[in-house]
Nucleic acid binder design. Structure first.
Length: 584
RNA sequence: GCGCCCGUAGCUCAGCUGGAUAGAGCAUCGGCCUUCUAAGCCGAGGGUCCCAGGUUCGAGUCCUGGCGGGCGUGCCA
């Protein structure tokens, strides 16, 4: 792959800096916010000022002089306090487009991960109820982070861990039992610490129905014949897990593996973890319980591993679970969790460190809570779920694509207000549609070009034609700016991947879509027909269609990384939901 | 009390290793259809970047101390 003009300039600056006697400074170019400052800029002179004890402008001037004439660079300017601004010539500015066209669906991918394996664990909901909005944010985040890692050269494993053991399962079973009895006319309240949602009653009804249809002996339905608690627990867990998987399916999220907490016990992993921890000198008995000295590793207080009744706290299977990740060969693990779990971070890591695993293992992305607003008021969705809003309700209302995008728009550590009015707005006010519509609009231009008879001298625009386009024909400032923006896409993907920040891609896409719309609109036939993409002038048209094609590729690739569909058409009917919602 | 996260325009939020005049969307106001789909575009107004110190050529960004909000701080998960 030939290097981009940006990379060539960066290398040249690096060399010039080395000539000044500073060989060990990395030079990275940035794109100036103000197009008047050129295509690329370097602040290297500013950063070297104190080290060289010289005024930054003087350093910049000397660098500019040493750089002399660079291939593809039309002008080098010293500006402001000491910036070096580089203005590419039209051909170089267009050359980025050629790379986009050549790489197509691969544009934005890189090999930073070098084929290393990484696990992303996310959602990991307990099988005690439907998935709620917090899980939705996690599902969108985890899947997008996983995609970003794949795009940057990692082999990614998506895993869902579920706690199907422990006290909560007893509470679930007891709740189902109470609902069964209620269905049979017995006045039996759901336990105070049980699950009160309507869905538990649904489970109870389904369970009774199954019992009734079973060929077994005791088919008469009365209070004495409800199934044993253990059967209720198994039935409820299976059903809830199935339901969660359907919710995830509707949300277009897939996992490579669902890992059961119970399996940790069945395989003796919890027991083995206790023994291993006991072999260290970091455990002690107090008040009849077995403690781990997690404070040795920065935890705020020591934690109980085994309660005084001999049963483990959730902490122990958590450590056992993460040991299994390590044993399965995952040296890189990202756990996506709600911030309400942040207290587990220190203790799980402490447990792992006690057994010799590295201190930063695993990595955590903790996201803040989600609230939904409509008309400026917080809304609660589901009566069915009891106290919280379900993901399924939200997805049914907005579609998977919109919901995913809205969950990804904000940085994970910021509270997320899900604005339903905006999510349901079919216009470009809705950021998802803004991006999707820009994409569809570009697709439409390409289609129109294929349909149009431009005359014998002008073959219809095909990808091969785009590749041969004279990109120096892209001279309009809006075209230059859009082309420059498209060149930035791979950088955003790598930055979003390494900082586990899909929202950066959202921001990038909205900016790009805005530039697309501006350019498109500037060339609207009612305004400046000479700026339209589909002009008669064949070389100009081919160049503009190359830009169209490149922008289309970038928008599509960006949406794809986020797990949001990139439709080539949007529906115009006021009644029908927009095509891009991905709710199908 | 202690720990983590947050505090930027009326609202929801971006702001890359500290850099040029602090940005976007929504909302408000004013323009633009002879449709490459106006579900759009152009423009305007709107800011003590929570406060106070510090670090330096330069701080929304880093450090310290406050203030305000969220979450956590179980032999619950």
């Amino acid at each position: 792959m030939s290097s981009s003009p940006e990379q060539q300039v960066a290398r040249a600056v690096q060399a010039a800096v080395a000539e000044l006697g500073v060989p060990d400074v990395g030079v990275r170019l940035e794109r100036p916010k103000d197009p008047a400052h050129g295509d690329w800029a370097s602040n290297i002179a500013l950063t070297l000022a104190s080290r060289l004890r010289r005024p930054p402008r003087e350093i910049a001037a000397e660098l500019a002089e040493r750089l002399g004439a660079l291939d593809g660079v039309a002008a080098i300017e010293v500006a402001g306090p000491g910036f070096l601004n580089f203005r590419l010539d039209a051909a170089a500015a267009g050359s980025a487009l050629r790379r986009i066209l050549a790489q197509d669906a691969g544009y934005g991918r890189s090999d930073q991960g070098q084929g290393r394996r990484i696990m992303v664990e996310f959602v990991s909901a307990n099988p005690t109820g439907p998935l709620h909005l917090g899980h939705g944010r996690q599902a969108a985040l985890g899947d997008a982070i996983a995609n970003l890692l794949e795009w940057t050269g990692w082999i990614v494993h998506r895993e869902f861990y579920f706690n199907d053991a422990g006290r909560q399962m007893d509470r679930l079973a007891a709740s189902v039992r109470a609902r069964c009895l209620q269905a049979l006319g017995v006045d039996e309240p759901v336990p105070e610490d049980g699950y009160h949602g309507e869905y538990v009653a649904e489970i109870a009804r389904a369970l009774l129905e199954e019992v009734r249809q079973a060929p077994a002996a005791e088919t008469h339905s009365d209070a004495a014949s409800v199934p044993p608690l253990d059967a209720m627990r198994r039935f409820a867990v299976a059903r809830l897990r199935k339901e969660q998987e359907m919710d995830l399916e509707a949300f277009k999220v897939r996992f490579d593996q669902f890992y059961s907490e119970t399996s940790l016990y069945d395989e003796g992993r919890v027991e083995a973890t206790v023994r291993a921890l006991n072999d260290t000198d970091l455990t002690y008995r107090q008040d009849g319980a077995l403690w781990l000295r997690t404070t040795s590793f920065g935890d705020q207080k020591d934690r109980v591993m085994l309660k005084s009744d001999g049963s483990p706290t959730y902490f122990l299977p958590d450590v056992a679970y993460h040991l299994s990740k390590w044993e399965r060969g995952f040296r890189h693990v990202v756990n996506v969790q709600g911030a309400d779990h942040h207290s587990t971070v220190d203790r799980v890591r402490a447990g792992l460190q006690a057994l010799g695993r590295p201190s930063g293992y695993p990595e955590y992305v903790l996201h803040q809570m989600v609230t939904v607003e409509r008309g400026g008021q917080e809304v609660r969705f589901s009566k069915r779920a009891g106290s919280y809003a379900t993901l399924a309700d939200l997805v049914a209302e907005t579609g998977a694509g919109v919901a995913r995008y809205f969950f990804l728009m904000r940085r994970p550590e910021a509270h997320l207000t899900f604005d339903l009015d905006m999510a349901l707005d079919p216009s470009d006010k809705n950021p998802v549609y803004k991006v999707q519509y820009a994409h569809a609009r570009l697709c439409r231009l390409l289609a129109l070009d294929r349909e149009q008879d431009w005359g014998p001298a002008a073959p219809a625009g095909r990808p091969s034609e785009h590749a041969r386009a004279e990109l120096s024909r892209l001279t309009h400032p809006l075209e230059r700016e859009l082309a420059g923006q498209l060149a930035e896409f791979p950088g955003f993907v790598t930055r979003a991947a390494t900082s586990r920040a899909p929202h950066l891609v959202c921001g990038y896409l909205e900016k790009t879509a805005g530039l697309v719309n501006s350019w498109y609109q500037a060339g609207h036939p009612s305004r400046r027909p000479d700026l339209a993409a589909l002009v008669r002038d064949e070389p100009v048209r081919t160049a503009r269609l190359a830009l169209v094609q490149a922008a289309r590729i970038v928008l599509r690739n960006g949406l794809t990384v986020l797990g949001v569909p990139a439709p080539s058409r949007m529906h115009r009917d006021a009644d029908a939901p927009p095509a891009g919602g991905g709710s199908a």
